[in-house]
């Protein structure tokens, strides 16, 4: 991510573009917020506030789930634009909070652009998530707790925790291979069902349903559906349906992954 964090436009900026740095920073802020998993409205609002803070009234910002754009026109009528594509990404709440705080601060105090640039570079150095063992532990705790939540016993929780670790490992490997979310969810669902079947047959878990549902909570499309509805209701008919499809695809992928293994096991 560090490579993508750095500004690709620096150095070869045309000399007749007075607001270049402002545009670059606004686009970079939107890009990083988006990459941290911020909703589309938050990204647009942050970029808009950023431009306003520096007295730009003729600026336009636009964001969809995988792209941010900033454009402004100067007094002579010349317009310049930045477009940043946002690659597939997870959610990094620490970064989301940090960039959101920076954006609010800049909107209030409008420090010099150099200072903003320095702060952005500082924030790019934030640690990138927890170390792998802690992440796997997180998956195990999440899956185990939700097995209990859905009516499983302690043994089911242990089994679901182990399935959670398997899903976590699977995600790490598929992340490394840059697999898309649909495939990742199918594979995750299949792997967790395989593990659950094995563990229940070995006698570690008792209730297959509780073990599978517990581990499956690691894959469900949590807030996506809500954000989708929010976008649709606010009239954002590009990002809204986009997210609805994403949520439905994830749910389908979960069903496909778990269902495939379950029906395969049922036929033996």
């Amino acid at each position: 991510m560090t490579a993508k964090d750095s500004d690709p436009n620096q150095g070869n900026r045309p000399a007749e573009e007075p607001d270049g740095q402002l545009l670059d920073l606004a686009a970079e802020l939107g890009f990083r917020l988006s990459l941290a998993g911020a909703e589309v409205d938050r990204v647009e609002e942050s970029m808009q506030r950023f431009l306003r803070a520096y007295g730009v009234e003729s600026g336009e910002v636009f964001a969809i789930t995988n792209c941010v754009m900033v454009s402004l026109t100067d007094k002579e009528g010349r317009s310049s634009t930045r477009i940043r594509q946002v690659p597939n990404h997870g959610t990094d709440l620490t970064r989301l909070m940090a960039y959101n705080a920076l954006s609010r601060e800049v909107a209030h105090t409008a420090p010099s652009l150099e200072e903003v640039q320095a702060r952005m570079e500082e924030l790019a150095q934030l640690p990138k998530g927890y170390p792998v063992p802690v992440q796997l532990l997180g998956s195990a705790v999440g899956a185990g707790a939700y097995a209990l939540f859905f009516g499983g016993g302690i043994r089911d929780a242990v089994a679901a925790g182990l399935c959670g670790v398997a899903v976590g490992l699977c995600n790490l490997i598929l992340d490394f291979l840059e697999t898309n979310q649909f495939i990742r969810t199918i594979v995750g669902g299949a792997v967790l069902t395989l593990c659950a079947l094995a563990l229940v047959n070995l006698g570690v878990g008792e209730s297959l349903d509780a073990v599978i549902i517990g581990a499956l909570m690691l894959l469900v499309p949590g807030l996506i559906f809500t954000n989708a509805m929010r976008n649709i209701l606010t009239g954002n008919l590009i990002s809204g349906p986009n997210l609805v499809i994403q949520a439905l695809l994830i749910a389908t992928a979960i069903a496909l992954g778990t269902g495939f293994v379950l029906s395969l096991a049922g036929s033996f």
């Binding site: 911020a38 709440l93 939700y146 349903d209 549902i213 499956l216 909570m217 469900v220 949590g222 809500t226």
Partner: peptide, 28 residues
Amino acid sequence: CPVTVYLLIAIFPLVPGAGIYFTMQHAI
């Protein structure tokens, strides 16, 4: 903090993960 931070985690008990699973089970 952004509201999303709270909603994102707090929503999980209510996300119908079991619903997705039982839907799939009836389907197969």
